[in-house]
């Protein structure tokens, strides 16, 4: 079977997914810093869709919610109960609820464009969106810590947690500083982007293999295309799950980081 597959592959029919999937050809302003490609178009469409949904829900808000309003309230209620209030508590969470809700629904909408037929590329699969949101979280937890403890108080609180033998601070303090300066925001960005990139590459691989096996491979390989197609559909469903999971993780880590800045002095 292998020589047959190799022979067919030699004709150049199989599309191997690569990182270039995420940098499609420019539609407008090619070559300038304002280059506009399919990914940007997808992001704008997702933003418009998100705004439309929430404006409609807010306009028609009734005391007794209809089905549409109930669905929106389910999402908002989930962010409020299971993310913000769970991590920060009711009092502290009220201030940060709008921010975390925005982060959650933005990431959810941008992730879901990866599985919507016709768009097929997650808005978050290039690091820009994630960097912007991570910077917002970065500023938020620094601001929260400084407002509560003062600049040096915040640093002392984070870098020198009490109850640890003094020599250990030589190792611990730099790590903690690195943690709040670089590792936290960078890990937020890498986690979201790498997950979306990996998901998209798996999808491309499955559907490209289906296309190749069905149309170009030898007759005895055509059967396998059913397998890859089923795999592609299963991964699509898995991607819907990942879209929600990544939005949840980003939001819960953002609230946990802010909450850590607000911890009482020991």
């Amino acid at each position: 079977m292998t020589p047959l597959l190799l022979a067919a592959e030699g004709e150049g029919g199989f599309h191997v997914p690569s990182i270039s999937e995420f940098f499609p050809a420019a539609i407008l302003f090619g070559g300038t810093p304002f280059e506009f490609n399919r990914l940007h178009l997808i992001r704008i469409l997702a933003t418009i869709a998100l705004l439309t949904i929430f404006v409609l829900a807010a306009r028609r808000a009734k005391v007794v919610p209809g089905r549409f309003q109930a669905a929106i309230e389910l999402v908002l209620g989930f962010v409020r109960k299971n993310i913000v209030e769970e991590v920060m508590g009711v009092e502290r969470g009220r201030r940060y609820l709008p921010m975390i809700t925005t982060i959650f629904v933005t990431i959810l909408a941008f992730n879901l464009t990866g599985v919507i037929p016709g768009l097929n590329l997650a808005g978050t699969s290039v690091a820009g969106v994630a960097i912007l949101l991570a910077l917002w979280v970065f500023v938020a937890y620094w601001a929260a810590g400084i407002r509560k403890h003062g600049f040096f108080g915040y640093l002392r609180n984070t870098m020198f947690p009490p109850g640890i033998p003094a020599p250990i601070y030589v190792i611990l303090a730099p790590i903690e500083l690195l943690q709040i300066l670089i590792i936290r925001p960078a890990s937020l960005v890498i986690r979201l982007t790498a997950n979306m990139v990996a998901g998209h590459i798996m999808l491309v691989l499955c559907f490209a293999a289906t296309h190749f096996l069905l149309l170009e491979a030898g007759p005895e390989l055509k059967v396998l295309s059913a397998l890859t197609l089923a795999g592609g559909l299963a991964i699509t469903l898995f991607e819907v799950f990942v879209a929600g999971l990544q939005a949840y993780i980003f939001a819960i880590l953002a609230s946990a980081y802010i909450n850590m800045s607000l911890e009482e002095e020991h």
């Binding site: 890990s187 890498i190 986690r191 819960i252 946990a256």
Partner: peptide
């Protein structure tokens, strides 16, 4: 669950760094 997710963030980033390094 919350504590687990924070710990998970540390563990998972290692695997993802391997993924990114591949590119």
């Amino acid at each position: 669950r919350t504590t687990m997710l924070i710990g998970l963030a540390f563990v998972e980033i290692l695997a993802l760094l391997g993924f990114v390094a591949g590119f």
